[in-house]
Amino acid sequence: MTRIGQAAMLLHGGDREEARNRFGALWAEIGETGDPLQRCTLAHYLADAQDDPGDELAWDLRALAAADSLAQERPVDRGAALALAALYPALHLDLAADYVKLQDPGAARLHLARARGASGALRDDGYGRGVRAAIERVARQVDGG
């Protein structure tokens, strides 16, 4: 997770290519069968590092699948369960934004509805307010304005 965080810092610092290279190397180590939390986190960041909307969608779908497998495979304590629940609105939001870029408003609306449905798990803090605001921004894009 530390190496994922270091590559994420590169991404947020604007070095998308180096971040993408490091994320790719980490994915080669972790793979499709690695720890679900690591797969979810890494796929989420790999999606953000993509230039092609189709590639971004593929990584966001992997992130969601890893979150689903984490929920099914690993017994989690209450705190971890709450953290995982709070991740779903952002995962569905990312998918909605991907489908907007790919000009698929039906799929975007589906994931917006799922993001809204899961948003009850968000706290009333900066992260929660940010995700809720982003859901509304993407909804306005889908609705044409």
Rank of each mutant, 00 (worst) to 15 (best):
D143G: 09
A139P: 04
L82F: 13
T33K: 11
R39M: 02
D52E: 14
G128V: 10
Q6G: 06
A7E: 08
M9W: 12
D98V: 02
R78F: 10
V142G: 06
G79C: 00
A67W: 03
R123K: 14
A107M: 15
A121K: 06
Y88L: 14
A133K: 08
G130L: 02
L46K: 09
A121Q: 10
A67N: 02
G106Y: 06
R62Q: 14
G126S: 13
C40W: 14
L102V: 09
D98Q: 09
D48H: 14
Y88E: 05
R39H: 07
R129Y: 11
D15Y: 07
R132G: 08
L95K: 05
L122I: 09
Y88M: 02
A139F: 02
I135Y: 00
Q6P: 01
A113M: 05
A107Y: 11
E136I: 07
G130F: 07
A8K: 08
W27K: 01
L93S: 05
I30R: 03
L91Y: 08
W27P: 07
R20T: 01
Y45H: 15
A71E: 09
A83I: 07
L112N: 09
N21S: 14
L37N: 10
D124A: 11
D55G: 12
L64G: 02
T2M: 11
A107L: 15
R140F: 05
A47C: 15
L70S: 09
Q6H: 11
A25H: 10
A139G: 04
D125K: 05
D98G: 03
H44N: 11
I135G: 04
Q141A: 12
Q141G: 03
L87H: 13
A58C: 06
H92M: 04
H92Q: 07
A108T: 05
P36F: 01
G5R: 15
G5M: 09
D60P: 01
D51A: 15
E17V: 14
G117Q: 09
T33N: 11
L64W: 02
N21R: 15
E18Q: 13
A63T: 12
A66V: 04
G34R: 00
G34Q: 02
D60N: 13
G117C: 08
N21I: 14
A121M: 01
A19C: 00
R22G: 06
A43M: 13
D35Y: 00
A63V: 01
L70M: 13
G120P: 08
D35K: 00
A28R: 14
A47W: 00
L26I: 11
L93Y: 07
R22A: 05
L10C: 04
L61P: 00
Y45E: 13
S119Y: 10
L26T: 01
L64R: 12
Q103C: 10
T41A: 10
V76D: 00
A86F: 03
P53V: 06
A65N: 00
A113R: 15
A139K: 06
G79S: 12
R137M: 09
L91Q: 08
P105F: 12
T41G: 02
Q38G: 03
